[in-house]
Design a binder for these strands. Sequence first.
DNA 1: TTTGTGTTTTTCATAATGTGAAAAATAATT
DNA 2: AATTATTTTTCACATTATGAAAAACACAAA
Lengths: 275, 275
Amino acid sequence: MQDDVKRGRGRPKAWDDKAPQNTIKSLDRALEVLVALGDMQGGTLSEVASALDQSPATVYRVLTTFQGRGFVDFDAQNQVWNIGAAAFLTGSQFLRRTSLVERARPIMRDLMDATGETANLGIERDGQVLFLGQVETHATIRAFFPPGTVSAMHASGIGKALLCRMDDARQRRVLAQGKLEQFTPHTLTDPDAMIADLHAARARGYAIDAEERNIGMRCIAAPVYNVFGEAVAGISVSGPTTRITTDKIAVLAQPVMDAAARLTVAIGGNNRPAG
Amino acid sequence: MQDDVKRGRGRPKAWDDKAPQNTIKSLDRALEVLVALGDMQGGTLSEVASALDQSPATVYRVLTTFQGRGFVDFDAQNQVWNIGAAAFLTGSQFLRRTSLVERARPIMRDLMDATGETANLGIERDGQVLFLGQVETHATIRAFFPPGTVSAMHASGIGKALLCRMDDARQRRVLAQGKLEQFTPHTLTDPDAMIADLHAARARGYAIDAEERNIGMRCIAAPVYNVFGEAVAGISVSGPTTRITTDKIAVLAQPVMDAAARLTVAIGGNNRPAG
DNA sequence: TTTGTGTTTTTCATAATGTGAAAAATAATT
DNA sequence: AATTATTTTTCACATTATGAAAAACACAAA
């Protein structure tokens, strides 16, 4: 970064260490409630209140206010509060911004048509893979990654497609974060084995997740590049090992790489990767 | 419906007309800001403030507070505020919750009450319509599609409601699969006639199955959209031609479309269809 | 039944804190 | 250089958020 930051229009922000008092405390506490409700995947009033160590009365008012705008739903049957449709709708506007998702949509649909398997789109965020969208196969047996799911980099096709294009330093940093947690007997937990796998993926042009996260599921992923040739997203197909057999991987990899290349073009990226 | 509703545990809510003061005003105003920011797809402080007719100082504090939790991002380059990743992450928890079928249930019940006819819910699977659920009319003569039933797309109201929102290529592909099998003298077997019928349905906003699958049965269906404005399901009413007469179709279509729109909202979808 | 326990919702007094106006400090424009 | 537009901070004041406790229920057991 440059030393002199590009500053905005009006009065400059106070770069003091003494915290400027321009945030709203009650709103912040309310957001804490909303996030907690999402993390715990719904709960009763008392559950939420005790989890946050806050007064039930306050949490109750926060929840009913959110409810008024549809940000949370209340299941009167079981007295359970949950994240509501409005939160999803507003939150989804985040995707529209980068326009990555919008542009990926038709490409993913074609990929699904060409391969018959569910197509996925994901990016890296905070050392994990964040799934942004998918187009589901029509087959009855299908992999399911709803948008918003996060997954470990080292045990995901898209994660490894992104990793294999990072320089060594960043690779090691990201991998060190997650400690290579073992999910299945096939998960690569040895750093050297992981590095070797990433080199292979880089040479091939696509990464493979062979039952490393879920037994019975394989995934083939390729990186998508931005204008600087940096891998900023991954596109993949995932399905059961019964359909994605080892000898079909090379066949399926081609449409995946094609789709990634198309998406790279669609977002104004450079298909000649940097480094 | 019963008069005595199933009530929860604790103290009952005050059913007074005089608004109970258990919502938080400042939080509500803050949510108004967040929703507006999403609707206008991002904007500068002054844009948001003037759009809501609020003091810039207040809106500023709201935005910085949201920013603190990642619910909005600030692009210092262009001084533009936008919906952030945390809003997306939390909002996405909504999807993880209940299924389409559960959300549709109360809506379908209302639709049945309003029309007096059996209400149906279906999606596309493997080129066919898969019925996921229904709420039966009280009348003795009734259409019966038990959940799990599959039916040909081209001879079903829901099927045509889904088809009429696909692009031409997919339309032709799906239709080619089934070869437009003839079930009754009214079944549309000519591809051009089918395309014309689908265009009409698209323009109307609802599709009609006029004895095309079963003699003596008519069906009125409307599409349900996901967050991308893609038709992912259909909702319909079906009944005997003696009750669903040709001159009643337009009358019955309104509650059907209303129900579809409600379900779209309930699943976090976008009622402005894509394409 | 009656009693007891664990809920959720409301009321109320009090103080915390959110609020707008205006000032301050910058960038863009003329 | 002066003006305009915009963002951020300060400050005095009153709005309003807050927790404790009470009220009103459901549920379980005696």
